[in-house]
Design a protein around this nucleic acid. Structure first.
Lengths: 357, 357
DNA sequence: AGGGTCTATGTAACCGCTTACGGTAAATCG
DNA sequence: CGATTTACCGTAAGCGGTTACATAGACCCT
């Protein structure tokens, strides 16, 4: 591998000049610059990033902290791929790269052990990463929060961390849920239940909140027995639906806080002999791929999937470049009306009277 | 940030000894070692990986080359997440990390321009990566092949590259396809068509080959008009099915080379008024999530998704550690019988006579 | 002509770690 | 008991860049 020194010798200049050619081209004479560039090309020169990082005390890498939650094995991020695409392309534009990190081992605390070679806290310091993008896997919120306080540039996804140089990006979960429930109300439903995500999960809480808000706005008093907790998994959707159907006054519509749970509820409804949407209207959240292929196709609240990645990248870059923190970004959601809610279904909504307290 | 020098001073030893404590602990006196470790812990010391890499001329990072194919926008890898999970965990065990790279810009050739800061060829050299994992995105096969010849440790997924230190991991595509078609034959079908992946794509070719082999083994002569090309996308499955149905003697069963296309075919069949599996049996490939939720649930050939990542990680680590190349690994597939093929369907298979040339 | 600017470049220190080499003292050997 | 090995550790030379500072010439001004 050719080094700067070799180029310098061949060009009859000093290594400093070679370095300048690549870092502050305007400070070097045009003729010299071209000579250096030509020789560099001939030698197929590639600057050594390690040497560079050592000298400048910063790297062009940002860490992506992503773990499959050990407390919820089998859990998959609903749109990791789109997220990565957005993240990667936006970062590339700045010449930055993604290093995949884990919350492994004992590295969960900020004062993580030196021995753990793979935890993100460790890696951040060992590699002088420019910043961190934190994907909430459900169990790391507290550790993320602590890390954010350390003053290191980071942006979390779907968990509202705060810190001197920390911020987050999330969907308008409340608004999304609200529009979903409003849609159901508009179709004539008043007995609307919801299947929530895990307790303590922020998007989950926000969706419940949006659900309640929409109900109140419609003059319907939210009922506690219509709010049943799930965990975003499919099976919990089925279980939750069973509980709802066992109520004295079962709901005529259900808003599930994830598409997976909505599919679970769909399966449960079918097993219970209910037709969707005729006997039970269903709306989900996420707009994962499955939503459009189940039968009936799922009405759902779509998130801006690549937008997450792009927003995260832009925000982290802004924080690396400038000082201070950036404002949190809240991405808009969009209700995608398909078949499971009964809108446009020729048979009409079968139950539901006018809204009334 | 504490440095090795500081530790050395506090301990009254030289930096060389500090370095030894972390790299060749057995060569330093136990008492000294413990003293150094204690001080390191107190100072919350983290070795600077850039300095380390600069000195040793190698990093603990391996590159993951993954692009969404620009020729096929919207294409998603069928199981990227599982792949990443397997890859990451297996790599972590060796203290290695994943750096996400792209085939961007003019970096497609080995002699890529120095100016391009993000292409994988460049990154590999600039960062002294330990090796590369190449995910076939459909259009990079030739570039991968060229790169593999360069002697750099790399393992490609689903594309058979060859080189001094290159190998690949893939599924038993031929065997998988064969078992799918055998199953169809076993159900009494003889007019079995296939919807293939893109021409030139290796897994696609292998699946066609398995299809033909199974047919011949069953004494059925493959017909050219029963082989229609798709591109792995859903829409191409629908289009292909239309063509098949327009034949004088339409098939009674279809093996699609991807689940996406199988779903497309399913939609097409439904639109054409055909019932699946009664009027048309359908088998897919991949076992993506969607496969189990469509109606009827898709019979398909499952790939060992996390196995890809684990195998890739093991292989690349073996090549980094030792010299030379590793043998390609071919992962077994498994036929997952669900409803779309008509097995176990009480109505039985409606068409299909005994196999006959 | 002397002083001040500006431009272009060289000099050399430094970033933090690894490691070849050499030295010292204790242990082992014939 | 002198010679040789062994265990342990320090010295110092890198690794390949960046950059503060110094220098030198060209140019402009009074």
């Amino acid at each position: 591998m050719a080094t700067g020194r070799e180029i310098a010798q061949l060009c009859g200049v000093s290594v400093a000049t070679v370095s300048r050619v690549f870092n502050q081209p305007e400070t070097v004479n045009e003729e010299t610059r071209e000579r250096v560039l030509r020789v560099a090309k001939e030698l197929d020169y590639r600057p050594n990033e390690s040497a560079r990082a050592l000298s400048t005390k910063q790297s062009t890498m940002i860490g992506l902290v992503w773990d499959t939650d050990h407390r919820r094995p089998g859990w998959r991020h609903p749109y990791l791929q789109d997220l990565l695409i957005g993240l990667k392309s936006a970062l590339s534009a700045h010449g930055y790269h993604l290093l995949m990190l884990a919350t492994s081992g004992d590295s969960r605390e900020v004062g993580a052990s030196l021995a753990d070679p793979v935890g993100y806290v460790n890696m951040t310091r060992r590699h002088h990463l420019g910043g961190l993008v934190l994907i909430d896997s459900g169990s790391d919120a507290a550790a993320f929060e602590a890390f954010a306080q350390s003053g290191f540039p980071c942006v979390a996804l779907d968990v509202a961390v705060d810190g001197p140089r920390a911020t987050y990006v999330t969907s308008d979960n409340e608004g999304g849920a609200r529009s979903a429930v409003q849609h159901l109300v508009g179709l004539g439903h008043s007995r609307i239940a919801t299947i929530t995500g895990p307790l303590g999960n922020q998007p989950s809480e926000a969706r419940v909140s949006g659900y309640r808000k929409a109900l109140r706005e419609a003059g319907v008093e939210p009922r506690d027995d219509y709010v049943v907790a799930g965990d975003f998994y499919r099976a919990s959707g089925t279980a939750a639906l069973h509980r709802l159907l066992a109520l004295d006054e079962p709901p005529t519509a259900v808003f599930a806080a994830s598409d997976e749970m909505a599919v679970g509820a769909l399966l449960g409804a079918r097993a219970a002999g209910l037709r969707v949407p005729q006997d039970l209207a269903l709306v989900g959240f996420d707009d994962i791929e499955i939503a459009s292929v189940v039968d009936p196709a799922l009405t759902t609240v779509a998130q801006d999937k690549p937008g997450f990645g792009v927003a995260a990248a832009k925000t982290i870059m802004a924080m690396i470049t400038g000082a201070g923190r950036e404002e949190p970004v809240v991405l808009p959601t969009q209700l995608v009306v398909r078949d499971s809610c009964g809108a446009g279904w020729s048979g009409g909504v079968s139950v539901a009277g006018p809204a009334g307290g």
